[in-house]
């Protein structure tokens, strides 16, 4: 899955190949917010194709429209114009109720501020998401136990979310997002509120979900997080400025002459 994504999504080839591997397709989407008679364009015509199992990051300065774009793709906001297709089905015109059903069954969402249900235990937060995704009680419990074990949270199953560290809460949020086995995981600054250890653990899990074939679209301003993805989309002023396939990580060869090394790796003095 990883290999397929890495070779097929060259920056300019999206339109050419719209076979069944396409999971999400947005064309010409815009979003203009209106307040007090002033209209503010946040997204100004974005085309985007995400394939099954592909992991793409969206980067850009604050105000570039990256979070708005993610919200449009997840149905949390309605686009002003343009089309969104998920799984071969046009979804941009769906009612809020229909979007809610679609999200429960097909889309996992992770936010910067976890958004866990505070008066439910960690286990119940995850189980509820599985139930809402259409699992029966037994399946939901199995899925819950499997995910919590997977994310190293079994010991915290009966705790209230507030008793957990930020990194742990975000792992619960990730378990919740994956509970319904979504075809698409949308993550909005998932490490934006975490220290470096917390970021690393969440990022490791996201990377593992991708290795298991999960399609992921992740918004971040942190290049170190974005570089976990195999593709980085740069947003600027509500438009795509660049869409780049990353090279497979390569360890710098030990005998490389220092003259050709990046300046950041050269010791001075």
């Amino acid at each position: 899955m990883i290999g397929v994504g890495a070779t097929h999504h060259g920056a300019t080839h999206h339109e050419a190949d719209l076979g069944q591997s396409v999971l999400l397709k947005a064309s010409g989407i815009t979003k203009t917010f209106r307040a007090d008679g002033v209209s503010v364009p946040a997204v100004r015509g974005v085309d985007l194709v995400l394939r099954r199992g592909e992991f793409a990051a969206i980067m850009g300065p604050s105000g570039s429209g990256k979070s708005t774009l993610l919200h449009l793709l997840g149905g949390l906001e309605r686009p002003t114009s343009g089309e969104i297709w998920l799984d071969g089905r046009r979804v941009d015109g769906l009612s809020q109720a229909k979007w809610a059903v679609l999200r429960r069954r097909h889309i996992g969402f992770v936010f910067q501020f976890f958004n866990l249900v505070s008066n439910m235990t960690v286990a119940d937060n995850v189980e509820l998401a599985a139930l809402m995704g259409g699992a029966n009680k037994r399946q939901a419990r199995e899925r819950r136990d499997e995910l919590l074990a997977d994310l190293g949270l079994s010991a915290k199953a009966d705790a209230a979310p507030a008793r957990l560290s930020g990194g742990e809460q975000q792992r619960v949020a990730l378990a919740r997002a994956l509970a319904n086995r979504p075809s698409l995981l949308l993550a909005d600054e998932p490490t934006g509120n975490l220290d470096s250890a917390g970021s690393q653990s969440v990022l490791r899990l996201i990377t593992r979900a991708h290795a298991d074939g999960q399609a992921i679209l992740l918004v971040t301003h942190d290049a170190r997080v974005a570089c976990a993805a195999e593709r980085v989309i740069s947003l600027f002023d509500g438009m795509v400025a660049d869409d780049a396939a990353m090279r497979p990580p390569r360890r710098p060869p030990a005998a490389r002459p220092s003259a050709t090394l990046p300046a950041v790796l050269r010791l001075r003095g």
């Binding site: 290049a223 570089c227 980085v232 090279r247 360890r251």
Partner: peptide, 22 residues
């Protein structure tokens, strides 16, 4: 200049990716 910036950005991102793996 945008092409210049994009090329440089890709290079930086790939460097970070390699360093992150290391």
């Amino acid at each position: 200049r945008l092409a210049l910036i994009n090329r440089q950005r890709r290079d930086y991102l790939n460097q970070i990716r390699s360093l992150s793996a290391l």
